[in-house]
Design a protein around this nucleic acid. Structure first.
Lengths: 89, 89
DNA sequence: CATATAATTAGACAAGCATCAAAATGAAAG
DNA sequence: CTTTCATTTTGATGCTTGTCTAATTATATG
C-alpha cells in the first residue's frame, strides 16, 4: 500500500493542524497560511506534501487556490488501525 | 494531545511493520529483529521509539524482553481521524 | 503594458532521523 | 566467576526535512 506518503504527511504538526482547519470546509492557501506563524512559502510546501499524499485536493478559482479535505485516504489509515486491533486477520 | 510522538513513530515503515507483526501477540526483541534486514541495534532503536510513543509495552522475562501492542494510543488516532470526518464538531 | 496580489518554486541551511559498528548492560549457565 | 546469549546504548555518518529568503508563475486590473 501507499501508506508511506500519508503517514509521513501526518507526522508534521503543522500539516495536521491544516487538516483540522479544513474539516469545516475549503479554504484558500492564503487563508490557511494566515493561521500559522511561518512564511506562506513554508505553508505552501506543507500543502504540497498533503496534496502529494492525497490528503487534500486543490481547486483553482481565478487568483485563488482552494484546498479541501480528501477523506478517502484517511479512511485507509483508519482501516489499517482497525486491522491492527482486529488481531490475526 | 500528545499526538506528535505517535504520528512520528508511525511515519517509519519498519515501525509500522513491527506493529503489524505484533498484532498476533507478544514477541521478543530478537524475534522481531529477525524479520527485518537490518541490525538488531537498529530494530532496538525502533522499538524504543514505539515504546516512547506508547504504541507498545515491554515485559522482561529472564533473558528476553517481550513486546506487545498497546491499543489505547491507536484508538486516539482513530478518534482524531473520525473527528476530521465528522465535520465542524 | 505595468502594477499589484496570490501562490508556488528554487536554493540554501540547520536540525532531525535511520542506520551501522562497537561497546556496554543484564541474565543465565557452565 | 567467566562465558555466552539477548538486548540496549553510544557515537558517528549520510540522508531527509522544515524553514527561510529570493525569484518565479499566474491572474486580475488600471
Amino acid at each position: 500500500m501507499a501508506f508511506q506518503k500519508t503517514f509521513k504527511a501526518l507526522s508534521d504538526p503543522t500539516r495536521r493542524a491544516i487538516l483540522d482547519l479544513l474539516k469545516d470546509g475549503a479554504r484558500t492557501a492564503g487563508d490557511i497560511a494566515s493561521h500559522f506563524d511561518m512564511t506562506a512559502a513554508t505553508v505552501s510546501h506543507h500543502l504540497s506534501v498533503l496534496r502529494g499524499a492525497g490528503l487534500i485536493s486543490d481547486d483553482k478559482r481565478g487568483k485563488y487556490i482552494y484546498y479541501e479535505l480528501n477523506m478517502s485516504v484517511l479512511d485507509e489509515i483508519a482501516g489499517w488501525i482497525a486491522g491492527l486491533k482486529g488481531g490475526s486477520g
